[in-house]
């Protein structure tokens, strides 16, 4: 199998076709717009908190299979987690994507997010995978009701 076919893991294709937690959220606590100026892709992440816990997270927007499936898997991974846990997951995910494509993957920390390891071989696509996470991370830290982050 070629590297590209390996990158498009079945899980990624599935989440691309049937994205989870897709759509607008009524009365969110935060909305973060993610924008990739290189390709023009845009993505909105909605967050609702219950105390320190991410009670609900949804997303919508235009994007490639990598950014869409990454957003979808992100929502399923962080829902119900504390802000600190979600932040730690973002950091682990980010660290994996920034690592060399031959470096071992921290499977315990990443769980099913490890399916994005194949993206490392295609540096221009790394930003597609991290775009939703940058939006999330910004929503976790800041207290602004609405803001925009970019990959550049």
């Amino acid at each position: 199998m070629s590297d590209v076919r390996a990158m498009y893991e079945q899980v990624i294709l599935d989440h691309n076709k049937n994205p989870r937690n897709y759509g607008r959220m009524e009365a969110p606590d935060r909305i973060v717009d993610g924008f990739n100026p290189l390709c023009g892709d845009t993505l909105k992440v909605y967050l609702k908190f219950d105390g320190d816990t991410v009670a609900d997270v949804k997303f919508e927007g235009h994007g490639c299979a990598i950014s869409k499936s990454s957003a979808s898997l992100m929502t399923t991974s962080v829902k119900g987690k504390t802000r600190a846990e979600a932040q730690a997951l973002f950091e682990a995910f980010h660290a994996m994507l920034k690592s060399d494509h031959t470096a071992p993957v921290d499977e315990a920390a990443l769980g099913k997010l490890r399916v994005f390891a194949g993206v490392r071989e295609f540096p221009v696509r790394v930003k597609c995978a991290t775009l939703p996470w940058h939006a999330l991370a910004s929503g976790l830290i800041h207290d602004l009701p609405e803001e925009t982050v970019t990959t550049e």
Partner: peptide
């Protein structure tokens, strides 16, 4: 498919 995914698979 999104144009990026089209481009990526064609590149392959």
């Amino acid at each position: 498919a999104h144009p990026h995914d089209i481009g990526q698979l064609l590149d392959d």
